[in-house]
Simulated scan of single mutants.
Amino acid sequence: MLLLTSNAYNIFWLGRYLTRIHFLCQHLPLQDDEHAKQLISALYLPAYDAASLTALLFDSEQSYSFSQQFSIAYDNVQALRGILSVQSYAELNAMFKSAKSNAVAICQVISDVEAVLEAESQDIFLFFSLGKYIEKLDQALRTQQECHDSLEKLDILANALSDYGWEDYVQVWQKFKVQPDLSTFNRLNAHLQQMFGVVT
């Protein structure tokens, strides 16, 4: 299946949003203020301790809340209805509707949502994985954690993207690997947006 650029972009961001939610779910329950402050600083969140960060994530009115992020991911699924298999779309629709604005339910269902998407066609899997590991790399760099696994996965994906005429991205990726930090990541991310036809 040959994906339209707009579909590939939606799949990419679906991978990023779901991975972002999953990352924060893994830190619950937030009880250590110092750990919470590290997350707040790394992700530039408007909170100041474990309690305020938890309140932020569980407040459906906040843009970085589980509910808001999950809602955006659901919008991406709706935009992809025409290219997802009938079974996958039905499963995803049911999962999103069952969790809705319930933060605890969202954290419980997020792995199942990812599994459905990763079982889709090769093209969907490719761009979903690209979004997933770009987000993981972003998180690791921001929180100053080891990122070897994400670098390995993105290296494999870069080779696969060569078949899509993404040689320019592959060259930028190779340069990024020489000095993988937030500054070079921002340039890589900007180039990715250009590959999707998004003006930054």
Results as ranks from 00 to 15, higher is better:
88 S>N: 11
37 K>S: 02
101 S>T: 12
97 K>T: 06
20 R>Q: 06
105 A>R: 07
78 Q>T: 00
84 L>T: 05
40 I>E: 10
138 D>G: 04
162 S>Y: 09
134 I>L: 13
162 S>W: 09
139 Q>V: 01
105 A>F: 15
93 N>G: 00
49 D>E: 15
85 S>L: 13
39 L>S: 08
162 S>I: 13
123 D>Y: 07
75 D>M: 15
34 E>N: 11
106 I>K: 07
40 I>R: 11
102 N>H: 07
129 S>W: 06
104 V>H: 13
134 I>N: 12
22 H>F: 13
24 L>M: 07
17 Y>K: 15
48 Y>K: 08
35 H>E: 01
152 E>R: 12
27 H>C: 01
70 F>V: 14
89 Y>R: 11
146 E>Q: 14
78 Q>H: 01
110 I>K: 13
56 L>I: 06
151 L>R: 09
51 A>E: 15
77 V>D: 02
44 Y>V: 08
159 N>D: 09
141 L>W: 08
122 Q>R: 09
128 F>Q: 02
45 L>A: 05
137 L>R: 10
62 Q>Y: 05
118 E>Q: 10
59 D>C: 04
100 K>P: 06
94 A>K: 14
71 S>H: 10
103 A>M: 11
126 L>R: 11
55 A>S: 08
31 Q>N: 12
156 I>M: 12
52 S>E: 10
124 I>V: 09
63 S>T: 12
82 G>Q: 14
16 R>V: 00
108 Q>A: 05
15 G>M: 05
74 Y>A: 14
150 S>A: 08
49 D>V: 03
34 E>V: 04
42 A>I: 07
52 S>R: 14
133 Y>N: 01
85 S>G: 04
106 I>W: 13
42 A>L: 12
138 D>C: 03
118 E>G: 06
38 Q>F: 01
56 L>H: 04
154 L>H: 05
55 A>T: 00
23 F>T: 05
99 A>I: 03
146 E>I: 13
121 S>V: 08
106 I>L: 07
151 L>A: 02
34 E>W: 04
51 A>S: 12
115 A>H: 14
47 A>F: 02
107 C>P: 09
148 H>Q: 13
29 P>Y: 11
133 Y>V: 00
21 I>V: 14
97 K>Q: 10
102 N>P: 02
108 Q>E: 13
128 F>H: 06
124 I>S: 10
155 D>C: 01
88 S>Y: 03
90 A>N: 14
97 K>N: 09
67 S>I: 11
37 K>A: 03
74 Y>G: 11
153 K>M: 11
131 G>V: 02
22 H>M: 15
154 L>K: 04
39 L>Q: 12
99 A>E: 07
